[in-house]
Design a protein around this nucleic acid. Structure first.
Lengths: 111, 111
DNA sequence: TTGTTATATGAGCATATACGCATATAGTTG
DNA sequence: CAACTATATGCGTATATGCTCATATAACAA
């Protein structure tokens, strides 16, 4: 069922492209990677990322609006967590693909 | 082994982000989707995409440079094909995730 | 050679967005 | 109420990139 050819509308293509665009910024990937260990508040993410509070806040909002992160307010603090588990698999897939590419390049020079 | 926590360098994050950026344009996704059926030359892709020859050529080059497509010259024509099979899984994952999101939204209104 | 076809590319324009700075808002404490 | 903390946001700027138009290049044919 997962293998049947899909016919994609312009709207669907736009949504898919948007999802990839969300993941196309190194700073957002760093935040996601930090959140792989579990829920964190903004301040913790600011410290872990080495970026500014304003910048981190904006990226978190972008990720939350896209449904990638969940947002939970507790007093003064806001906690973000990964809401879409497919993110793990997406990153694993891309990492694996890039590693394979790199291996092939190395082998091409080694012969 | 695939589940061990990865520690990602800035360079690795940049490469991963770059791969996602490659997939973040609707026109490139349309070209990839068309190529799911098999190898095609530029002209066929121009017709299938409804875009201009210059634009399609540029996008194909972007995808080929990223290692997503392969390039084969035969006389006057150039044939492109999907070189990285992980693309199929990436698109399936994203489509599945977006469908799930949509379903949840519908259910939220239905209650 | 000249002409024709298929593809690639240089230049300019328009748009999107990441970032920094300053400030606003919300919640807590006194 | 004021003061403090945690987070969000408005604005300006710089950069990246997608698109169009025109032209260049490459391969083939006559």
């Amino acid at each position: 069922m997962a293998k049947k050819p899909r016919s994609l509308s312009d709207e669907a293509l736009g949504l898919i492209a948007r999802r990839f665009a969300i993941l196309s910024e190194p700073m957002r990937l760093r935040l996601l990677h930090t959140l792989f260990a579990g829920e964190l508040n903004v301040n913790a993410l600011v410290k872990a990322s080495g970026s500014t509070q304003a910048n981190v806040s904006r990226h978190l909002q972008t990720l939350a609006e896209a449904g990638v992160l969940s947002r939970r307010k507790e007093g003064l603090q806001v906690f973000y967590a990964i809401a879409d588990p497919s993110i793990f698999q997406l990153c694993e897939l891309v990492c694996g693909s890039l590693e394979k590419q790199h291996t092939k390049r190395v082998e091409a020079f080694a012969r």
